[in-house]
Structure formats: C-alpha cells, structure tokens
Computed example of a mutant assay.
Amino acid sequence: MKKIGGGTMDLLQLRYFRTVARYEHMSRAADELHVSQPSLSRTVARLEAELGTPLFDREGRRIRLNQYGAVFLRHVERALSELDDGRRALREARGGGLGKVSVACETLLTIAGLLARFRAAFPRADVRLFQADAAEMERRLRAREVDFCVASQALTGPDLDSVELMREEVLLAVPLGHRLAGRESVTIAEIAEESFVATRPGNWQRALLDRLFAAEGRTPEVTCEGDEPGATQDLISAGLGIGLVPAMSHQVARQVGTHAPVAWTRVDAPDCHRVLTLVWRRGAHLSEAGRAFREFTTGRSLRSMLHPGLQ
C-alpha cells in the first residue's frame, strides 16, 4: 500500500477505479467486479478524497471521467499493467512450458492456417485467440489483455508498434448470373445502386466499403450485415447481395474449389486492398511463446501460412 496525502491508496482501489473509468457506469462496473454498487461507490469516493481531486463528474446517476481522472487513469493503467506483467513473468519462470501468447483478430479464419503452423512448431506454447473489431483490439492491447493483434485496419498510438505482414487486392464478388458477372472491372458508380453484403461498422470490410463510396460522395446500401467477414462469400452466393472479398479467397476457390460459388470482378477504385499488420504494445512483457510467435509470424511467408493449400 502507498501513502498519498495522508491516506492509504491500495491496489484494490486502483483496480476498482480503472473498471469504473472503463464503463463510466457504477452498476456495470460493480457487476464485472462482483461487488455491491454501494461498496464500489464508497471505494471510489475514498480514493478521490485521498487524492484530493474528483476523478469523475456526476450528473444524477450518470458519471463521466473528467480531465483529472483521465490523467490519473493513464498512470494507473501503466502501474497495474507492470504488476500484471510481473505476475506473468513469475508464472512462466515457475512453469515448464513456453508461457502464454494471446492474439486478437477481426476474423478468426484469417489466422487459422498461421496458428496451425505455429502450434505444430511450438507445441508447448499456450495460445489464446479472441475475435474483436479495431476499437476492441486497441482496448485489449492497452489493457494488456492480448499480446498481439492481427489487424486489417490501422491501429494507432504512440505506444504501439506494427509490421506489415501481407497486402492483397480486394475484389467484388457477385452471385452467379448477376448482371455484373463476367465483367473484368466495375466502377463505384456502376454498383452504387446495388444491395451489399457487409460486416457491421468497425470491421475492415465495412470500413473499406464506406471509404470507397465516400470518395465518390455516395453511401452504400447495406441490406445484409453481420459480424463474421468469412461468411460474406456464402451470403453473396445465396443471392443476398454483392460484396467485397479479399483476392486470396478467390485464389483459394479456384485451386481447391468452394461450396459458395460466386463471380469475381475488380473494383476500379484507388486503394481497394487489404493490409494485414501485426501490432503489439511497445515495451510490454512477452513470454517466450510471445517472442516465438512474433518471430515466427514476421519471419515467414504469411501467404502460405494463412491458406496452407495455396501455393
């Protein structure tokens, strides 16, 4: 415990504060922490009294992290993260394995082949995988809930490092028999009135679609919206609309066949591509498994690892 302004600030107070700051809602924070709301409120109030500064603005039952709370939160996140890293390092030192590596990705299918190869090469590594959109991946990285993100959108921040793993063209997939089937390329204007199969806002496919249309002063008509980019081709094949699909999926379909046949065409628009990057937090503790994963991922051809059947 640490003395501050004549009071005693402990780790429990800091963890409680961090959770309340994340939710800006006492009831939700209390549910996650498995404590009563009155107890949580008293703990946060005691911390504010000891610091001599309010950390939240309160409007009735609503609370908002204020400018002082935001400043304090940055230091609390760093301090608690260092302690969590220390615990991980001790567990790894006591254990006989390589430790744990946690990875987040927008679509789990993207790195299935990569993880299969990694597990085969490092069977003693404990691998944890999470699905998340770009905003959730950034949050998980900063909270040290994951070691790496395999992202198809830019994750930015002064404390994040990244390396480009792969760049691929994104094609337009249309149902067989569609009026655009057989076309070599199409413009945004030619598909402006079409119905689109897309992912929800926050995912890379939706971000790319919205960006391409915004460049032409238009908004796409999304009539089928989901959370799993890997399902897009199946939905297009079922006739629910047209959509953007990475070129690698087209190449795999040609080589190994597919249960969801579609017709493919290029999009005549600048930067219609997907960039996969590996992102991690600079200076964060990495287990032996984490260090092996980074070296394994950045030192090989990701193309063949993502789709082992594609040569």
Rank of each mutant, 00 (worst) to 15 (best):
residue 150 V to R: 00
residue 139 R to S: 14
residue 279 V to A: 00
residue 131 Q to F: 07
residue 57 D to I: 07
residue 180 L to T: 01
residue 58 R to I: 14
residue 285 H to G: 10
residue 149 C to D: 07
residue 266 R to P: 02
residue 135 A to N: 05
residue 263 A to T: 07
residue 305 M to D: 13
residue 11 L to K: 08
residue 110 T to Y: 13
residue 63 I to Y: 05
residue 278 L to C: 07
residue 175 P to V: 13
residue 297 T to R: 02
residue 75 H to Q: 09
residue 31 D to N: 07
residue 145 E to D: 12
residue 69 G to I: 08
residue 285 H to V: 11
residue 47 L to F: 13
residue 265 T to G: 05
residue 114 L to E: 04
residue 310 L to E: 03
residue 103 V to H: 05
residue 34 H to K: 15
residue 215 A to W: 07
residue 265 T to M: 12
residue 73 L to F: 00
residue 33 L to M: 14
residue 21 A to D: 10
residue 102 S to E: 12
residue 2 K to T: 15
residue 310 L to T: 01
residue 145 E to V: 06
residue 93 A to I: 11
residue 244 L to S: 02
residue 189 A to P: 04
residue 151 A to M: 01
residue 278 L to Q: 03
residue 259 H to D: 14
residue 304 S to A: 13
residue 221 E to H: 12
residue 130 F to D: 12
residue 23 Y to T: 05
residue 275 V to R: 10
residue 296 F to G: 08
residue 55 L to D: 05
residue 260 A to E: 05
residue 95 G to K: 02
residue 211 R to L: 10
residue 7 G to P: 04
residue 199 T to V: 09
residue 251 Q to R: 15
residue 45 A to I: 10
residue 78 R to G: 10
residue 240 L to S: 05
residue 66 N to P: 11
residue 124 R to K: 14
residue 130 F to C: 06
residue 114 L to S: 00
residue 191 I to W: 08
residue 125 A to R: 02
residue 165 L to I: 09
residue 294 R to A: 15
residue 270 P to E: 03
residue 101 V to D: 06
residue 167 R to M: 07
residue 184 E to C: 09
residue 107 T to Y: 06
residue 177 G to M: 06
residue 272 C to K: 00
residue 38 P to K: 04
residue 189 A to N: 11
residue 304 S to P: 00
residue 76 V to F: 03
residue 131 Q to Y: 06
residue 67 Q to K: 15
residue 306 L to P: 00
residue 227 D to W: 07
residue 121 A to W: 04
residue 40 L to I: 07
residue 61 R to G: 04
residue 151 A to V: 01
residue 148 F to Q: 06
residue 225 E to M: 15
residue 14 L to G: 00
residue 306 L to R: 15
residue 161 D to C: 14
residue 145 E to M: 10
residue 5 G to A: 05
residue 297 T to K: 03
residue 70 A to G: 13
residue 238 A to Y: 08
residue 189 A to H: 12
residue 92 E to Q: 14
residue 191 I to M: 11
residue 40 L to D: 04
